[in-house]
Amino acid sequence: MNEGLMPDSAGVITPSVLLQYQRDWVNIRAPLKVGEKSRRIGLTWAEAADNVLVAAASKSARGQTVYYLGYNQDMTVEYIQACAMWARAFDYAAGEIEEGIWPDEDPDKHIKTYTVVFPSGHRIVALTSRPSNLRGRQGVVVIDEAAFHSDLAELLKAALALLIWGGEVHVISTHDGTENPFNELIEEIRAGKRKGHLFRCTFREAVADGLYDRVCMRRGIPHIKEEEDAWVDNV
Protein backbone atom coordinates (compact mmCIF):
# COMPACT_ATOMS: atom_id res chain seq x y z
CA MET A 1 0.00 0.00 0.00
CA ASN A 2 1.16 3.54 -0.70
CA GLU A 3 2.38 4.88 2.65
CA GLY A 4 1.64 8.40 1.45
CA LEU A 5 -2.04 7.65 1.84
CA MET A 6 -1.79 6.92 5.56
CA PRO A 7 -2.74 9.47 8.24
CA ASP A 8 0.13 10.22 10.59
CA SER A 9 0.29 9.34 14.30
CA ALA A 10 -1.80 12.39 15.17
CA GLY A 11 -4.54 11.37 12.74
CA VAL A 12 -3.65 14.13 10.29
CA ILE A 13 -3.67 13.23 6.59
CA THR A 14 -0.25 13.51 4.98
CA PRO A 15 0.55 16.43 2.64
CA SER A 16 1.16 14.16 -0.36
CA VAL A 17 -2.51 13.27 -0.58
CA LEU A 18 -4.49 16.46 -0.02
CA LEU A 19 -3.77 19.99 -1.18
CA GLN A 20 -3.19 22.68 1.44
CA TYR A 21 -6.74 24.06 1.47
CA GLN A 22 -8.13 20.52 1.75
CA ARG A 23 -5.84 19.81 4.71
CA ASP A 24 -6.81 23.12 6.30
CA TRP A 25 -10.48 22.12 6.07
CA VAL A 26 -10.24 18.58 7.47
CA ASN A 27 -7.88 19.62 10.28
CA ILE A 28 -10.44 22.06 11.70
CA ARG A 29 -12.00 20.40 14.74
CA ALA A 30 -15.05 22.34 15.89
CA PRO A 31 -18.64 21.49 16.87
CA LEU A 32 -19.85 23.57 13.91
CA LYS A 33 -17.67 24.37 10.90
CA VAL A 34 -18.89 26.02 7.74
CA GLY A 35 -17.06 25.96 4.43
CA GLU A 36 -17.92 28.46 1.68
CA LYS A 37 -16.20 27.38 -1.49
CA SER A 38 -15.96 27.45 -5.23
CA ARG A 39 -17.43 24.58 -7.21
CA ARG A 40 -15.52 21.39 -7.97
CA ILE A 41 -12.41 22.05 -5.90
CA GLY A 42 -12.53 18.67 -4.14
CA LEU A 43 -13.62 19.76 -0.66
CA THR A 44 -16.20 16.96 -0.37
CA TRP A 45 -13.52 14.47 -1.48
CA ALA A 46 -11.31 15.67 1.38
CA GLU A 47 -14.29 15.59 3.75
CA ALA A 48 -14.85 11.93 2.83
CA ALA A 49 -11.25 11.14 3.84
CA ASP A 50 -11.77 12.74 7.24
CA ASN A 51 -15.13 11.00 7.68
CA VAL A 52 -13.49 7.60 7.12
CA LEU A 53 -10.87 8.36 9.79
CA VAL A 54 -13.62 9.36 12.23
CA ALA A 55 -15.92 6.40 11.53
CA ALA A 56 -13.06 3.87 11.62
CA ALA A 57 -11.86 5.09 15.03
CA SER A 58 -13.01 3.43 18.24
CA LYS A 59 -15.27 5.23 20.68
CA SER A 60 -12.33 5.68 23.07
CA ALA A 61 -10.46 7.38 20.20
CA ARG A 62 -13.43 9.74 19.69
CA GLY A 63 -14.79 7.85 16.71
CA GLN A 64 -18.38 8.54 15.66
CA THR A 65 -20.94 7.59 13.07
CA VAL A 66 -21.15 10.03 10.15
CA TYR A 67 -24.38 11.09 8.42
CA TYR A 68 -23.97 12.68 5.01
CA LEU A 69 -26.83 14.67 3.47
CA GLY A 70 -26.57 15.69 -0.18
CA TYR A 71 -29.40 17.24 -2.12
CA ASN A 72 -29.56 14.66 -4.90
CA GLN A 73 -28.75 11.00 -5.45
CA ASP A 74 -25.83 11.52 -7.83
CA MET A 75 -23.75 13.51 -5.34
CA THR A 76 -24.66 11.02 -2.60
CA VAL A 77 -23.39 8.10 -4.66
CA GLU A 78 -20.22 10.00 -5.57
CA TYR A 79 -19.57 10.71 -1.89
CA ILE A 80 -20.07 7.14 -0.64
CA GLN A 81 -17.84 5.81 -3.41
CA ALA A 82 -15.14 8.26 -2.28
CA CYS A 83 -15.53 6.96 1.28
CA ALA A 84 -15.10 3.37 0.09
CA MET A 85 -12.00 4.39 -1.83
CA TRP A 86 -10.48 6.12 1.20
CA ALA A 87 -11.22 3.09 3.40
CA ARG A 88 -9.25 0.91 0.99
CA ALA A 89 -6.44 3.49 0.71
CA PHE A 90 -6.10 3.70 4.49
CA ASP A 91 -6.24 -0.12 4.65
CA TYR A 92 -9.19 0.02 7.05
CA ALA A 93 -11.39 -3.04 7.12
CA ALA A 94 -14.88 -2.02 6.06
CA GLY A 95 -17.94 -3.68 4.66
CA GLU A 96 -19.19 -3.22 1.13
CA ILE A 97 -21.55 -0.35 0.39
CA GLU A 98 -25.01 -1.38 1.58
CA GLU A 99 -28.24 0.13 0.26
CA GLY A 100 -31.19 0.66 2.55
CA ILE A 101 -34.11 2.88 3.51
CA TRP A 102 -34.06 5.60 6.16
CA PRO A 103 -37.07 5.34 8.51
CA ASP A 104 -38.93 8.64 8.29
CA GLU A 105 -41.89 10.21 10.07
CA ASP A 106 -43.71 10.44 6.77
CA PRO A 107 -44.82 6.86 5.89
CA ASP A 108 -45.10 7.82 2.22
CA LYS A 109 -41.53 9.14 2.09
CA HIS A 110 -38.77 6.66 1.32
CA ILE A 111 -35.22 7.94 1.67
CA LYS A 112 -32.58 5.75 0.09
CA THR A 113 -29.35 5.30 2.00
CA TYR A 114 -25.86 4.05 1.24
CA THR A 115 -23.92 2.74 4.25
CA VAL A 116 -20.36 1.62 4.96
CA VAL A 117 -19.86 -0.21 8.28
CA PHE A 118 -16.51 -0.33 10.12
CA PRO A 119 -15.26 -2.81 12.73
CA SER A 120 -15.32 0.08 15.22
CA GLY A 121 -19.10 -0.25 15.19
CA HIS A 122 -19.47 3.16 13.58
CA ARG A 123 -20.90 3.76 10.12
CA ILE A 124 -20.96 6.27 7.34
CA VAL A 125 -24.56 6.74 6.22
CA ALA A 126 -25.19 8.76 3.07
CA LEU A 127 -28.78 9.85 2.48
CA THR A 128 -30.24 10.76 -0.89
CA SER A 129 -32.50 13.48 0.53
CA ARG A 130 -33.31 15.29 3.75
CA PRO A 131 -34.92 13.27 6.55
CA SER A 132 -37.76 14.98 8.42
CA ASN A 133 -35.77 14.64 11.63
CA LEU A 134 -32.49 13.44 13.11
CA ARG A 135 -33.83 12.78 16.60
CA GLY A 136 -32.14 9.97 18.47
CA ARG A 137 -29.03 10.13 16.30
CA GLN A 138 -25.53 10.88 17.49
CA GLY A 139 -22.40 11.61 15.50
CA VAL A 140 -21.13 13.87 12.73
CA VAL A 141 -23.60 15.42 10.28
CA VAL A 142 -22.26 16.59 6.91
CA ILE A 143 -24.58 18.87 4.91
CA ASP A 144 -23.16 19.16 1.41
CA GLU A 145 -24.07 21.97 -1.02
CA ALA A 146 -26.20 23.29 1.81
CA ALA A 147 -27.39 26.39 -0.06
CA PHE A 148 -29.29 24.15 -2.48
CA HIS A 149 -31.23 22.12 0.11
CA SER A 150 -34.96 22.85 -0.01
CA ASP A 151 -35.35 23.59 3.73
CA LEU A 152 -31.88 24.25 5.11
CA ALA A 153 -33.13 26.21 8.13
CA GLU A 154 -35.10 23.23 9.49
CA LEU A 155 -32.31 20.82 8.59
CA LEU A 156 -29.78 22.91 10.50
CA LYS A 157 -32.08 23.04 13.51
CA ALA A 158 -32.26 19.24 13.57
CA ALA A 159 -28.55 18.75 12.92
CA LEU A 160 -27.37 21.25 15.52
CA ALA A 161 -29.33 19.39 18.20
CA LEU A 162 -26.72 16.63 17.89
CA LEU A 163 -24.11 19.00 19.34
CA ILE A 164 -25.66 18.46 22.78
CA TRP A 165 -24.17 14.97 22.87
CA GLY A 166 -20.75 15.89 21.49
CA GLY A 167 -21.44 15.57 17.78
CA GLU A 168 -20.21 17.80 14.98
CA VAL A 169 -21.95 19.56 12.11
CA HIS A 170 -20.00 20.24 8.90
CA VAL A 171 -21.73 22.55 6.43
CA ILE A 172 -20.20 22.79 2.95
CA SER A 173 -21.51 24.78 0.00
CA THR A 174 -21.06 27.15 -2.87
CA HIS A 175 -23.28 30.22 -2.61
CA ASP A 176 -26.77 30.59 -4.06
CA GLY A 177 -27.47 34.26 -3.49
CA THR A 178 -27.51 36.34 -0.33
CA GLU A 179 -31.14 35.70 0.68
CA ASN A 180 -30.34 32.11 1.55
CA PRO A 181 -30.09 30.30 4.91
CA PHE A 182 -26.52 29.25 4.06
CA ASN A 183 -25.37 32.84 3.64
CA GLU A 184 -27.38 33.86 6.69
CA LEU A 185 -25.59 31.19 8.73
CA ILE A 186 -22.23 32.59 7.64
CA GLU A 187 -23.28 36.14 8.52
CA GLU A 188 -24.50 35.01 11.96
CA ILE A 189 -21.12 33.43 12.72
CA ARG A 190 -19.21 36.47 11.43
CA ALA A 191 -21.35 38.76 13.58
CA GLY A 192 -20.79 36.61 16.67
CA LYS A 193 -24.47 35.69 16.92
CA ARG A 194 -23.67 31.98 16.56
CA LYS A 195 -20.60 30.00 17.53
CA GLY A 196 -18.87 28.30 14.63
CA HIS A 197 -15.67 28.10 12.61
CA LEU A 198 -15.69 29.64 9.13
CA PHE A 199 -13.57 28.39 6.24
CA ARG A 200 -13.36 29.97 2.79
CA CYS A 201 -11.67 28.90 -0.43
CA THR A 202 -12.11 30.59 -3.80
CA PHE A 203 -11.35 28.93 -7.11
CA ARG A 204 -8.16 30.93 -7.64
CA GLU A 205 -6.97 30.10 -4.13
CA ALA A 206 -7.50 26.41 -4.91
CA VAL A 207 -5.51 26.79 -8.14
CA ALA A 208 -2.71 28.53 -6.23
CA ASP A 209 -2.58 25.52 -3.90
CA GLY A 210 -2.15 23.13 -6.83
CA LEU A 211 -5.63 22.24 -8.10
CA TYR A 212 -4.55 22.32 -11.74
CA ASP A 213 -1.56 20.12 -10.90
CA ARG A 214 -4.03 17.48 -9.70
CA VAL A 215 -6.15 17.90 -12.82
CA CYS A 216 -3.06 17.25 -14.95
CA MET A 217 -2.11 14.25 -12.80
CA ARG A 218 -5.58 12.75 -13.17
CA ARG A 219 -5.67 13.36 -16.93
CA GLY A 220 -2.10 12.18 -17.43
CA ILE A 221 -0.98 15.37 -19.18
CA PRO A 222 2.02 17.65 -18.56
CA HIS A 223 1.55 20.86 -16.58
CA ILE A 224 2.03 23.75 -19.00
CA LYS A 225 1.59 27.26 -17.59
CA GLU A 226 -0.14 28.64 -20.70
CA GLU A 227 -2.65 25.78 -20.65
CA GLU A 228 -3.29 26.35 -16.95
CA ASP A 229 -4.06 30.02 -17.64
CA ALA A 230 -6.47 29.05 -20.42
CA TRP A 231 -8.12 26.44 -18.19
CA VAL A 232 -8.61 28.96 -15.38
CA ASP A 233 -10.10 31.53 -17.79
CA ASN A 234 -12.50 28.93 -19.17
CA VAL A 235 -13.64 27.85 -15.73
Rank of each mutant, 00 (worst) to 15 (best):
P107L: 04
P107C: 06
R135D: 11
M75Q: 14
N27F: 07
K37H: 08
G139T: 05
V12M: 14
R130L: 02
V17R: 15
L5F: 14
D233E: 15
V142W: 03
E227A: 11
V17E: 14
Y67W: 05
F203C: 09
E47K: 05
A87C: 03
I111N: 02
R40I: 04
D24K: 13
L198S: 06
I80H: 04
S60D: 14
C201A: 12
G11H: 01
Y67V: 08
R204S: 12
I13Q: 10
V125Q: 02
A57C: 03
R137F: 10
V117P: 02
M75W: 09
Q22G: 05
N133Y: 01
R123K: 15
L185I: 03
D176R: 14
R88F: 10
L32E: 04
H122N: 15
N183S: 15
S60F: 13
K225L: 10
P119L: 03
R200M: 10
R204Y: 07
Q20N: 14
I164H: 12
G139Q: 06
A61H: 12
G95E: 05
R40V: 02
L134H: 04
L18C: 04
V232R: 07
V77Y: 10
V232W: 02
L160G: 00
E98A: 14
A159Q: 07
L162C: 01
T202G: 13
A206N: 07
T128L: 08
A84I: 04
Q64R: 15
S129Y: 08
P7F: 05
E154I: 10
D106A: 10
V215N: 00
D91C: 12
L43Y: 13
L185S: 08
W86I: 00
P222H: 00
Y212D: 03
P107H: 03
N183T: 14
H170P: 03
G35Y: 05
A84Y: 11
R219A: 15
N133L: 07
S9A: 14
Y68T: 08
Y68Q: 08
S60L: 13
C201I: 15
T76H: 07
T115C: 01
V141R: 03
E78G: 11
I97G: 00
T202S: 15
D8E: 03
L163R: 09
L5S: 10
E228A: 03
R39Y: 03
V235I: 12
P107T: 05
V116D: 00
V215P: 02
S129R: 15
A93F: 10
V171P: 09
L134I: 01
I80N: 06
D74Y: 08
V116A: 02
P181G: 06
K225P: 07
D229F: 09
A153R: 13
I28A: 01
A230Q: 10
D8G: 05
A158I: 01
P107G: 00
